[in-house]
């Protein structure tokens, strides 16, 4: 049972790190916080692997470490540090305090939804499951509430981490190849978004999503 408590506790930490990613002022810092968050995720995987005695999860945590803690943050850090739009500021459309309150609301709501799931495997890790769902929606919230297009990329990454955690919690013995597929996809997605974001910055000289309004109707 200690293992499950560890999993649930680490999941709580995940929410904190994701708030840091959302609220960091500079994309470079967000990338650092994202690496930290992914590291927490890897720890959760390890704890889960220990608890459920899942050989696959050990492999997962290894590959997640390579992709999420190392590769993706590096790509983002290298790509985004060069891009800076001083006019934009933090790019958030609401004050940080409000974001935190809203995040708390999302978490509560997700706890309520998850309480309805009746799967036996989910019984011990319901808090973590709720966190993973909340994490998903926090990512979505990040995309909606940020005008900085680079922050929107982080939003996607958070969503992806959320669903990744759900997968690990609910189906610890999924084939390794599945995890590799998801992780590679995420790398490509982040890479392509980084390239497009850079191109947009070079062409439009801004990172403000509100300035992308040529196409309407």
């Amino acid at each position: 049972m200690v293992g499950f408590q560890l999993v649930n506790g680490l999941a709580g930490l995940l929410i904190v790190t994701s708030l840091l990613v959302i609220l960091a002022r500079r994309p470079g810092n967000s990338a650092r916080f994202y690496a930290l968050q992914s590291f927490v995720l890897v720890l959760i995987f390890l704890a889960l692997a220990e608890v459920s005695d899942s050989h696959e999860l050990y492999l997962w945590s290894a590959s997640a470490f390579v992709t999420k803690v190392v590769l993706v943050p590096i790509i983002m850090y290298r790509a985004f540090s060069k891009l800076d739009d001083p006019k934009l500021g933090s790019g958030a459309i609401m004050p940080p305090a409000l974001s935190v309150v809203l995040a708390a609301l999302v978490v509560i709501l997700c706890f309520w939804v998850v309480s309805g799931v009746a799967l036996p495997a989910a019984a011990a890790i319901k808090p973590a499951l709720a966190v993973s769902l909340a994490h998903f929606f926090l990512g979505l919230g990040c995309i909606v509430s940020q005008r900085n297009i680079l922050k929107q990329v982080f939003g996607y990454c958070l969503m992806e981490n959320g669903s990744h955690l759900t997968l690990a919690l609910l189906a610890a013995k999924a084939p390794e190849l599945v995890e590799v597929g998801i992780a590679t996809d995420a790398i490509f997605a982040v890479g392509i978004m980084a390239v497009l974001g850079t191109k947009i910055f070079l062409t439009l000289h801004t990172l403000d999503a509100r300035s992308l309004t040529t196409l309407k109707g």
């Binding site: 998903f136 939003g155 996607y156 978004m193 062409t203 040529t214």
Partner: peptide, 21 residues
């Protein structure tokens, strides 16, 4: 590679990846 096509590509990638998430 024009302004409008980059904008379209960006919206396409963001909305679709988020949606597909």
């Amino acid at each position: 590679g024009q302004k409008s096509s980059l904008e379209a590509a960006w919206k396409y990638v963001i909305i679709c990846t988020v949606g597909v998430a």
